[in-house]
Design a protein around this nucleic acid. Structure first.
Length: 506
RNA sequence: GCCAGAGUAGCUCAGUGGUAGAGCAGAGGACUCAUAAGCCUUUGGUCGGCGGUUCAAUCCCGCCCUCUGGCACCA
């Protein structure tokens, strides 16, 4: 079986993680967990991108050497992954030797094949900003803005990668591989971009301008440009592991689809003679209270705080429930609280608690067996089959938000079933028929709850685990079997009470 | 300017060539096992605008309007 190999973008360690980083990891994690549940062999990679000028500058600003700086920030991302319960199998850093070794190897290989050549670049250079400027950087009157200081036209020797030679091939590949770029409409954007002729890509920087990078193996006076270094992480992390490459999905933000992932990356692989990934999955961005996320306005969300206050699964749930994959969404405290209170606390959380309570009160804390089956039971069961089949299919097509909506509709139906049977009334009757119905209703609500939360396992693994725990249940290894309505809870000893999503106090 | 996405109930969104849907918010009710939770009922929309195709369009086509995002070698 081909390993399902999934990657997130590696995060640039120039700044601390925010909600956007958290979302991409959670989204990827949901995919990874879902594939494992479906029985696939999964390899899930994330990591950090640590070279380049901005990192070098930030390190200098903090008065530390680059390695100390990236160690510290990379660790923040690692901590975030742990906090979000991301199930990655590996975490790669581009400053690791295992990565640098592969980058050097590929560069040498491409150079030997003649895919990389040396040429001069002539342009306007700002010494203060340590970068070349574009015409779009100019003021309307043609002068250079103050922040660039003195600008001079200079010529610099560099190495270039032959992108242009692969342009037609790439267009053809995108046209003939319909799921290479997801969502589909993003592929149109890429093809639009490719209507203009590509230029070859400059992949080097002279070391006197940029020290913090991987030296070119064929010319140590240069280091490689950040994209050529960073993109290769997907391959370098598994280069020595059999049967993993190529990637099944690269999960990335829409901002780095064009040109890096949809143009540079496939061409790099093709030139190096490596197989291409199956798909690039480009997700959207979060705004905060209707405005763009930005550090300068202080308008960004610390995902860690939400985990601490509401629990990691509440945040995971909101991110996945609110965002339609590929589209943008807005994060607001009001919307978060509405979903937390209505859906998690009142609908699901309360169902858990009332189920435990009634099982304790009317059945000595032991889930009874079903004794009769009438229309209410049959209806709920039929709804379950429909919900399960739809939810699984929706997961397959990345419509997690709709899958969650359907799953919670089933939770609501379970609450409605309880009202219909009203076990608290049956419990007051000694009529054998009522007693049979009481046992049936307690067994049915427990089973419905078990099934419903089993369907939430990819999004809220901890919650699924906890609820199975308070039901006194240990799930089996095969998820598909766990999704079958059964009597396997009969005889389970349930907990006395459980408040999984406490109502916010403030 | 070009390209793409979005424009459906107060809010967030789903949806199909055949008399409009969900959740939340609002209103009313019955109940009490439960996290003052849950359940039932209900108010509410000329489906952005104008044309066209069709027996029939929110859904197909054309034009227009509004919002959002992208438009690279940041060498």
């Amino acid at each position: 079986m081909k390993t399902f190999y999934l990657t997130t973008a590696i995060d640039y360690v120039n700044g601390s993680p925010h909600l956007g980083h958290a979302y991409e990891k959670v989204l990827s994690d949901v995919i990874a967990r879902f594939r494992r549940l479906m029985g696939d062999k999964v390899w899930f990679l994330t990591g950090t991108d640590e070279h380049g000028q901005k990192v070098q500058q930030s390190a200098r600003k903090h008065g530390v050497d680059p390695q100390t700086f990236v160690d510290s920030v990379s660790n923040e991302f690692r901590v975030l992954c742990t906090k979000l319960e991301i199930s990655n199998d590996d975490f790669i850093r581009t400053t690791e030797e295992r990565h640098k070794r592969v980058v050097r190897r590929i560069l040498q290989q491409l150079f030997d094949k003649g895919e990389i050549y040396q040429a001069d670049y002539k342009g306007f250079y700002s010494t203060r900003q340590e970068q070349f400027l574009q015409d779009k950087d100019r003021n309307p009157d043609g002068s250079w803005p103050e922040i660039f200081g003195e600008v001079t036209e200079i010529t610099e020797t560099n190495y270039f990668f032959k992108l242009k030679a692969y342009q037609e091939w790439l267009v053809e590949h995108i046209r003939t591989h319909e799921d290479f770029i997801i969502p589909r409409y993003r592929a149109k954007q890429v093809l639009e971009f490719l209507k203009e002729p590509l230029n070859d890509l400059c992949i080097s920087r002279p070391r006197e301008r940029l020290e913090w990078g991987i030296p070119l193996p064929f010319d140590e006076k240069f280091v490689t440009y950040v994209w050529f270094d960073a993109l290769l992480n997907y391959y370098s992390a598994v280069a020595d592991k059999p049967d993993i490459w190529p990637a099944t999905f690269h999960v990335i933000g829409k901002d780095i689809l064009v040109p890096p992932h949809a143009v540079y990356w496939p061409i790099m692989l093709q030139a190096a003679g490596l197989p291409l990934p199956r798909s690039l999955l480009a997700h959207g961005w979060w705004s905060i209270n209707g405005t763009k996320m930005s550090k300068s306005t202080g308008n960004f969300i610390d995902a860690g705080n939400y985990c601490d206050t509401y629990g990691v699964d509440a945040l995971r749930y909101f991110l996945i429930r609110e965002m339609s994959v590929g589209q943008d969404s807005d994060f607001s405290q009001a919307q978060f609280l509405a979903r937390y209170t209505n859906e998690l606390a009142n609908n699901l959380g309360n169902l858990v608690n009332r189920t435990l309570n009634m099982t304790n009160r009317f059945a000595g804390a032991t889930v009874p067996g079903v004794e009769v089956e009438e229309a209410p039971e049959a209806d709920l069961r039929a709804l379950w089959v429909k919900t399960r089949d739809e939810a699984v299919a929706l997961h397959e097509s990345f419509q997690f938000h709709v899958a969650l909506e359907r799953t919670f509709a089933f939770i609501t139906a379970t609450n409605a079933y309880i009202e219909l049977r009203a076990p608290w009334k049956l419990g007051k009757s000694s009529d054998p028929k009522d007693q049979a119905l009481l046992k049936t209703s307690l067994a049915t609500m427990a089973e419905a709850l078990r099934l419903g939360v089993t369907l939430l396992a990819a999004v809220m693994p901890g919650t699924t685990r906890k609820i199975h725990g308070v039901l006194g249940y240990t799930p089996g290894a095969v998820w598909a079997e766990e999704l079958v309505w059964s009597n396997r809870l009969t005889g389970c000893k349930v907990a006395a009470t459980a408040i999984l999503f406490p109502r916010p106090t403030a």
